[in-house]
Simulated assay, not measured.
Amino acid sequence: MYHLLYQSLALASFSLSELLELLQKSRAYNAARGITGILLHAPNGQFLQLLEGEKGAVQHLYYHRIAADPRHEHLVVLSEGPSTTPMFPDWSMSFRSGTGPLALPGYLAPSAAYFRVSNLPQAPPELKRLLLDFTAGYDDSPLAESMIGSRR
Rank of each mutant, 00 (worst) to 15 (best):
H3V: 09
L4D: 05
L5E: 00
Y6C: 07
L9C: 04
L9K: 13
S13D: 12
F14E: 00
L16E: 04
S17K: 10
S17N: 09
E21I: 02
E21C: 09
L23N: 03
R27L: 04
Y29T: 12
A31Y: 05
G37E: 04
I38G: 05
I38F: 06
A42N: 03
G45R: 01
G45L: 07
Q49E: 10
L51R: 04
G53H: 02
A57K: 12
A57N: 13
Q59Y: 02
Y63S: 00
R65S: 13
I66P: 04
D69V: 03
E73T: 14
V77L: 13
S79G: 11
P86G: 10
P89N: 13
P89A: 14
W91Y: 08
F95I: 02
S97P: 00
A103K: 08
P105K: 03
P105G: 08
P105M: 08
L108W: 14
A109L: 00
A109I: 05
A113H: 01
Y114W: 14
F115S: 12
V117F: 03
V117M: 01
S118W: 00
N119G: 11
N119K: 13
A123R: 00
P124W: 02
L130R: 11
L131Y: 01
L132T: 09
D133T: 11
D133G: 15
T135E: 05
T135L: 07
G137L: 10
G137R: 07
Y138N: 00
Y138P: 02
D139A: 06
E145Q: 15
S146E: 11
R152G: 12
